[in-house]
Amino acid sequence: MEKNIYKPINARIEKVIEETANIKTFVLKPEEKFSFATGQFIQMTVPGLGESPFTPSSSPYETARIEVTVMNVGRVTSKLHSMNEGEIVGIRGPYGKGYPIKDYYGKEVVILGGGVGMAPLRSFLLTLLKESNKFKRIVLCYGAKTPQDIVYKNSFPVWKKEKHLEILRSVDKAVGKWTETEGLVTVLLDKVKPDLRNSVAVVCGPPIMMKFGTFKLIELGFKPEQIYLSMERNMSCGLGKCGHCGLGKYFVCKDGPVFTYDKIKDIPDVWA
């Protein structure tokens, strides 16, 4: 029989990392060979309950384990949050098109992330850092609601030491000790001053941030084809068949999840 496209393979939860009050990172060890390109996503099954799409947050160069960062927002994710080390989940994939890393060689890469939208961007960033000399400049603009909502608290100190990486962070509301920017993440973009003829922007975050982040980038002079967006839609199969993730004529799972803005900007309900 040909491969059954609907059936997941087992992956064992090796470690659970608490990122914030409602975000956890699950370190998974697939029981069969599994690899992905950064930006591609997987379907993760909680046995007997349901399945949801996640883009791994780990480096694709690490093939023995996959990390998936999950915010507790729904039925599947809430069950996931109650799961412990040693338990089994299912994974299928990888699906979709990832980031075209080679197209970014020699360019300034501006990464704009919000909240748990940092998950795919972490994988992307780790991929860039693996060959950081290939890029003219790497800037990470990251925003969260409050300092407590910042994910990857352990990674930032490490990233700060990377000489090829500039990091700008903001929180919507500064509480406690916060010495960095206060305000929406888009304000960070004013500080970047990229060489517009030779830059790309890579955006992932909540829908409202994606929308205004894109508008801000356009306002700053980015062309739609320079803006790479991770689109979110309901997904069931991940295979380009079930219809749920329709975005105009595209299926986000198959034709995305990463789209350049020029491809989708004329779809009337693109930001819906």
């Binding site: 099954t45 007997g48 309950l49 069931s236 749920h244």
Partner: peptide
């Protein structure tokens, strides 16, 4: 053709 995959509880 639309369908939904549902895990049996």
């Amino acid at each position: 053709y639309c369908f939904l995959l549902s895990d049996i509880e």
